[in-house]
Computed example of a mutant assay.
Amino acid sequence: MIRQVVLDTETTGIEISEGNRLIEIGCVEMINRELTGNNLHIYFNPGRESEEGALRVHGLTTEFLSQFNRFDDEVQRIIDYLTGAELIIHNAKFDIGFLNHELALAKRPPLETFIGGVIDTLELAKQMFPGKKNNLDALCARFEISNKHRVLHGALLDSELLADVYIAMTRGQFGLGLDVEEEEVSAQIEVKKLDATVLAALPIIRATAEELEAHDKYVAVLEKASGGETFWRALPTTEGN
């Protein structure tokens, strides 16, 4: 069983050094790439105002947040939920930085000591789509995932969208077994129908060095996301191929 948690946070501002705090965490659970509905969504009272720029992004006012518990009061609930899971985060450095800061203030160990690892979808996207916009809105558009209801940023909504994006980004390396078998059988049938003289005349077009390098980079992205060797690595190779 592979348990993954897609996670997002909202904060009072972007700099921890300026006293900014966590105000929201949203988590979406997946077991074997299937959404379970066992999600976690918590607002926190940060004990301070949000910066103007941050407030424009998330819209969570001080008055609204004042009715909720502080992070310290919810910390064990968060640790219990995240323990053992592989986290999927967009721009993981930011969210992990704030979570570890809050854990330290609550005198708890850092995130890395009780989770099963982290996949940063921003880094995956940069490798898959170099030179392009790779924020969540851009990825939703690229994979045709509707985000029309995303007027303001919200940790749970963004986690739900990111879960769909991650599944779309990594779909290629899953479910290959039967599909590949069927493709191989189909290919064999088609070859048998061709005349031997026709086969002999077919040109062999080999990949260029640039194409091979691009393919190798893409396979590396798939392997990083799946945590194992892809089908292409397992294929036997011959000299010159």
Results as ranks from 00 to 15, higher is better:
residue 145 I to D: 05
residue 120 D to T: 04
residue 134 N to A: 11
residue 147 N to I: 11
residue 180 V to L: 09
residue 140 C to N: 02
residue 146 S to C: 13
residue 198 V to P: 08
residue 148 K to S: 14
residue 145 I to H: 02
residue 161 L to P: 00
residue 197 T to N: 13
residue 196 A to D: 13
residue 157 L to K: 11
residue 151 V to M: 14
residue 180 V to Q: 11
residue 157 L to E: 12
residue 185 V to A: 14
residue 160 E to Y: 07
residue 166 Y to V: 00
residue 135 N to S: 04
residue 134 N to Y: 05
residue 159 S to T: 06
residue 199 L to W: 07
residue 196 A to S: 14
residue 164 D to N: 12
residue 202 L to G: 08
residue 192 K to D: 12
residue 169 M to I: 02
residue 205 I to L: 14
residue 152 L to A: 14
residue 191 V to L: 14
residue 165 V to K: 01
residue 195 D to T: 07
residue 134 N to G: 06
residue 184 E to D: 15
residue 137 D to F: 12
residue 165 V to G: 02
residue 162 L to C: 08
residue 145 I to S: 02
residue 188 Q to K: 12
residue 198 V to F: 10
residue 153 H to Q: 08
residue 118 V to S: 02
residue 180 V to P: 09
residue 178 L to F: 11
residue 119 I to F: 02
residue 136 L to T: 05
residue 158 D to S: 05
residue 185 V to I: 14
residue 174 F to N: 00
residue 190 E to F: 10
residue 206 R to D: 10
residue 176 L to C: 09
residue 155 A to S: 06
residue 196 A to I: 11
residue 162 L to S: 05
residue 195 D to N: 10
residue 195 D to G: 08
residue 149 H to L: 15
residue 205 I to W: 13
residue 185 V to Q: 14
residue 168 A to D: 03
residue 204 I to M: 11
residue 163 A to H: 04
residue 194 L to H: 05
residue 153 H to E: 09
residue 181 E to H: 10
residue 160 E to V: 08
residue 201 A to V: 06
residue 138 A to Y: 03
residue 188 Q to W: 13
residue 159 S to E: 05
residue 157 L to C: 10
residue 173 Q to S: 04
residue 196 A to F: 12
residue 116 G to T: 08
residue 149 H to Y: 15
residue 169 M to Y: 01
residue 195 D to C: 07
residue 156 L to T: 02
residue 160 E to C: 06
residue 168 A to Q: 00
residue 163 A to F: 02
residue 170 T to V: 03
residue 158 D to Y: 04
residue 173 Q to T: 03
residue 154 G to T: 01
residue 191 V to Y: 14
residue 143 F to T: 01
residue 199 L to A: 09
residue 130 P to M: 04
residue 133 K to H: 12
residue 171 R to Q: 10
residue 185 V to C: 13
residue 177 G to C: 11
residue 127 Q to K: 09
residue 189 I to P: 09
residue 154 G to V: 06
residue 168 A to Y: 01
residue 133 K to D: 11
residue 164 D to L: 11
residue 195 D to Q: 09
residue 162 L to E: 07
residue 131 G to V: 05
residue 170 T to F: 00
residue 176 L to Y: 04
residue 166 Y to P: 01
residue 117 G to L: 05
residue 204 I to G: 12
residue 147 N to V: 08
residue 205 I to R: 10
residue 195 D to H: 06
residue 123 E to R: 09
residue 169 M to T: 00
residue 165 V to Q: 03
residue 134 N to H: 08
residue 145 I to R: 01
residue 170 T to P: 02
residue 186 S to G: 11
residue 163 A to E: 04
residue 180 V to W: 08
residue 181 E to R: 09
residue 168 A to V: 00
residue 184 E to Y: 15
residue 176 L to G: 03
residue 201 A to H: 08
residue 173 Q to A: 05
